[in-house]
Design a protein around this nucleic acid. Structure first.
Length: 877
RNA sequence: GGGAGCUUAGCUCAGCUGGUUCAGAGCAUCUGCCUUACAAGCAGAGGGUCACUGGUUCGAACCCAGUAGUUCCCA
């Protein structure tokens, strides 16, 4: 059977994924083994796979596959998030295309459409993860809005309300006028924009005097209820007790004095609009000011504004500015840069707005979450995020958890027509509670709160709820899998999600939800822009997989992704990954192609090669294991890459490769062949977490195996290093080989031409053990030891010996002498620096003794090498 | 405005508690090879005043201070 020259992922990937599923290798149920658990950061149901998911899930899959091979009970729980605002926006848009307005539908009808939509498109992203090779336990797939998880959310709301941690109140919230909902502080993105600062003068009542204020938002003038100045400000001290007239609306409002005012900004006088600015609101509360809400929920002027009713606030801004100018009340207009908040979901400019919302108190509940990150009980990787985390947790605000949407868990609060409130799971329970609280009331019908809970109010329970920890708090699953081990996610949602999961973990399980949080970087394009659908700069991951294979893409993503650092993505990374797959494939082709002869005995070369590689493998695997334990995924991959490409392919296979005689490969002895298979299997195992598909394919091609004997469940190799001396010896062997190759290259000698080599040992004992290896790798016809230097030969000098290669062609004395002189100069310079160091008394007396010893040894080595080179130079003449 | 981090080869990054003439890797680049596993390959080469300035030290990419640039977080 002819094995194709290049590896074709297309014919293997779907085959093996189906095979793994069929034999339930991803499945996990509690048993006596140690669990290793990861819960997936549930992607939005609306989502399609983007590069961020690719990176994220590749890392999770590498971790889970390695743990599985290490004999742990590996469990990776998948699922999706209902993403209330994002999904609702999609459904609204889809209905709009059909000419249906949300406002024309009942809540029930709208939700019916939404569920239909979810059933149709909600699974796409999980299907895409399969292409990547994600070994999730799909039987455990959860959805944040499914029955059990929704129940958990409602129960938690009721519980926290009973504990007095949840309250309802009128507060200034971040209002998204497009999504028509409140959003949390974390969902507001502040961007610097070019704005105009309008200087507007207001007339002092019963006076000819004017006072000038500066504002970026003249449209809010209609809602002004005071002017504020600093009590120490000499410019305004005389205005105590005076009032001013608000232009256009001609309202008389007081001048108030407060140290909040920044004397330097603008004119030092501030217009106060309690309804439309958080700081003004606070001033209003303090000074008992009237609140006039002039901007409606949709961002248009309300009736209270009296002017421009129904027109958008930004249009009105220009109109008012013009009108004020005509009235002669604009003093000047400056161009400035300021920060404006935008909604993360709809990109609308956020409007500070007073509204009735539900809040979760964060001060006490967040305490354990801060402590246990600071004391290392939960580790953030990389560590630098601990600072950011600490800062946030120490300044945390109450969490606005209500959203004016329909898609999500409806808030279990019930009202009578007077606004009395009870919190309960069902209408019946609510009525019972209500009767107790209001015994004289005859009300039989309570109205449930229209709003739903913030999406994060369900995903913060994820690590508990996926194991039914609320439904069944002492269940087998939750007791076995919780706390989970690793969480892999993006730093952007450290507060949205990670911090809150930790809070919920301590509140509801009295224990952390996970031990390690691996924060991946953000995938960017070459210009450093974040990859996003709106920019259109993100490659389609599925197309990438088709082009380079899932293994290639996995390797490509991981090659350049140190934890927490951004990942400037470039397709060429995946190309490198694909090339690596091909390299592995060809190693397999080579081994598989050998003819085995059980009658010939193993030669010394092969025996030593095996000895060396086994030691090398163990040494490298220990390094790789260590890198994994530090979550240095890129480096673990690079170490694996070099072990396979350099040590195994370039050195080991070249050493044992049977020679070609008369156009035919000689057979290989059985011992070497069998041992090579064992080695190759170990190589495949170490590769498997990174490149699951090709390793499974080769695993089954290299020898006959049954369906259940798969590499996905093979045992991770163990190491036992007995003697590393052979590794040191090989350093010298490789140096010799590289020097000889260099001479070939320089002298333009064909690799086919056989050469003679002479060695003159100057220092230490003569080790002949490796001679046959050098002969094979360098294509030598002979290798002899001599006492004197060989005349008329090319040469090179190592620390312990001189090497000579006689050549048929004439030696270019001048060139040779130049090369040797250069070498000599370098060594002399080196010697001088060492001598200088040793001559420095302060060095000798202050440095560590072993340091000084080391310098002395360097001195001796350098001296002997200089002597050897000088002799050679003399010999040339 | 407050805080944190980063700045090492063309690119992406290593360099642990300071000690092999001021440094490593992968990719990219250049040169030569279609040498029967692999041109998605092989063999070789070039490339860095470790952001800048000063300090501590026998010795600094590493420690300290300042400057510049850059990223992120919070307001």
């Amino acid at each position: 059977m002819e094995i194709p020259k290049t590896y074709d992922p297309k014919i293997t990937e779907d085959k093996w994924y189906a095979h793994w599923l069929k034999h339930k290798f991803f499945k996990s149920t509690p048993d006596e083994r140690e669990p290793y658990t990861i819960v997936i950061p549930p992607p939005n149901v609306t989502g399609v796979l983007h590069m961020g998911h690719m990176l994220n899930n590749t890392i999770q899959d590498v971790l889970i596959r390695r743990a599985r091979m290490q004999g742990k009970n590996a469990c990776w729980v998948p699922g999706t998030d209902h993403a209330s605002i994002a999904t609702e926006a999609k459904v609204v848009a889809l209905l709009a295309e059909k000419g249906i307005k949300k406002t024309d539908l009942s809540r029930e009808d709208f939700l019916k459409y939404a569920w239909e939509w979810k059933e149709k498109y909600g699974g796409i992203i999980l299907k895409q993860l399969e292409k990547l090779g994600a070994s999730c336990d799909w039987d455990r797939t959860r959805f944040t809005m499914e029955k059990d998880l929704s129940d958990a959310v409602i129960d938690v709301f009721i519980d926290l309300h009973n504990k007095g941690q949840i309250y309802r109140g009128v507060r200034m919230v971040n209002w998204d006028p497009q999504g028509l909902t409140a959003v949390s502080d974390e969902e507001v993105i502040h961007k610097e924009v070019n704005s105009k600062l309008y200087y507007v003068r207001y007339k002092i009542e019963n006076s000819d005097e004017w006072i000038t204020i500066a504002t970026t938002r003249p449209e809010t003038i209609l809602g002004d209820t005071a002017i504020c100045v600093h009590p120490e400000d000499e410019r305004y001290k005389h205005l105590k007790g005076k009032r001013v007239i608000i232009p256009m609306v001609n309202r008389s409002v007081p001048i108030i004095f407060d140290t909040y005012i920044d004397l330097e900004f603008g004119t030092g006088a501030l217009k106060v609009t309690p309804a439309h600015d958080i700081n003004d609101y606070n001033l209003g509360v303090k000074h008992n000011l009237e609140v006039i809400d002039t901007i409606a929920a949709d961002g248009k002027m309300s009736a209270a504004a009296q002017f421009y009713i129904g027109e958008d606030r930004f249009v009105v801004r220009k109109k008012i500015a013009k009108e004020l100018e005509e009235m002669g009340q604009i003093v000047k207009i400056e161009d400035i840069k300021n920060k404006v908040g935008y909604s993360e979901r709809t990109n609308a400019v956020i409007e500070p707005r007073l509204s009735m919302q539900w809040f979760l108190k964060m001060d006490t509940i967040s305490k354990p979450a801060l402590e246990n990150v600071l004391n290392g009980e939960i580790k953030l990787i990389p560590e630098k995020f601990v600072n950011t985390y600490k800062h946030w947790m120490e300044n945390v605000h109450d969490w606005c958890i209500s959203r004016q949407l329909w898609w999500g868990q409806q808030i279990p609060a019930w009202y009578d027509d007077k606004g009395n409130t009870v919190v309960a799971k069902t209408h019946e329970e609510a009525l019972v509670k209500y009767k107790i609280l209001n015994p004289e009331s005859k009300t039989l019908n309570l109205k449930q709160d229209e709003d739903v809970l913030d999406t994060w109010f369900s995903s913060w329970l994820w690590p508990i709820s996926v194991f039914d920890g609320f439904k069944n708090p002492d269940g087998k699953d939750i007791n076995y899998y919780y706390p989970t081990n690793d969480l892999v996610t993006a730093p952007e949602i450290l507060f949205f999600w990670v911090a809150r999961m930790i809070i919920a973990g301590y509140e509801y399980r009295g224990a952390k939800p996970f031990t390690n949080v691996y924060l991946t970087g953000i995938v960017r394009d070459k210009q450093g822009r974040k990859m996003s659908k709106s920019l259109g700069n993100s490659p389609d991951p599925i197309e990438l997989i088709e082009k380079f294979g899932a293994d290639g893409v996995r390797v490509g993503m991981l090659l350049c992704s140190p934890a927490g650092n951004d990942l400037p993505f470039d397709e060429s990374m995946c190309e490198q990954g694909r090339n690596f797959s091909n390299k592995i494939w060809n190693a397999f082709r080579l081994i598989k192609g050998w003819e085995v002869d059980s009658n010939i005995s193993q030669n010394e070369t092969n025996k030593i090669a095996i000895q060396w590689f086994e030691t090398k493998f163990d040494e490298q695997l220990e390094i790789i294991n260590d890198l994994y334990s530090k979550y240095r995924m890129s480096e673990a991959l690079m170490a694996t890459y070099k072990l396979v490409w350099d040590d195994f392919c370039a050195w080991y296979l070249e050493m044992i490769k049977p020679e070609f005689v008369d156009g035919k490969s000689l057979p290989i002895d059985k011992t070497t062949y069998d041992e090579t298979l064992v080695i190759f299997e170990k190589i495949l195992k170490v590769l498997h977490p990174f490149t699951p598909f090709i390793t499974e394919e080769i695993w089954h091609l290299i020898i006959e195996r049954n369906d259940k004997d798969c590499i996905i469940v093979a045992e991770w190799p163990k190491t036992k290093i007995e003697d590393t001396l052979i590794l040191n010896h090989f350093e010298v062997v490789m140096e010799v080989v590289s020097n000889i190759r260099n001479i070939r290259k320089q002298k333009n000698i064909s690799p086919k031409e056989k050469l003679k080599l002479f060695e003159k040992v100057n220092q230490g004992e003569i080790i002949k053990k490796y001679d046959t290896i050098i002969m094979k790798l360098c294509n030598l016809s002979s290798f002899e030891y001599v006492d004197k230097k060989v005349d008329g030969a090319f040469s090179f000098v190592l620390k312990h010996a001189e090497y000579y290669i006689p050549l048929s062609q004439n030696i270019d004395v001048a060139a040779e002498s130049e090369r040797l002189t250069k070498d000599l100069d370098y060594n002399k310079g080196f010697l001088r620096s060492v001598q200088a160091k040793l001559a420095n008394e302060k060095f000798v007396s202050n440095a560590k003794p072993e340091m000084v010893e080391n310098e002395k040894k360097k001195l001796a080595d350098a001296e002997s090498k200089i002597k050897a080179i000088e002799e050679q130079l003399a010999g040339l003449k």
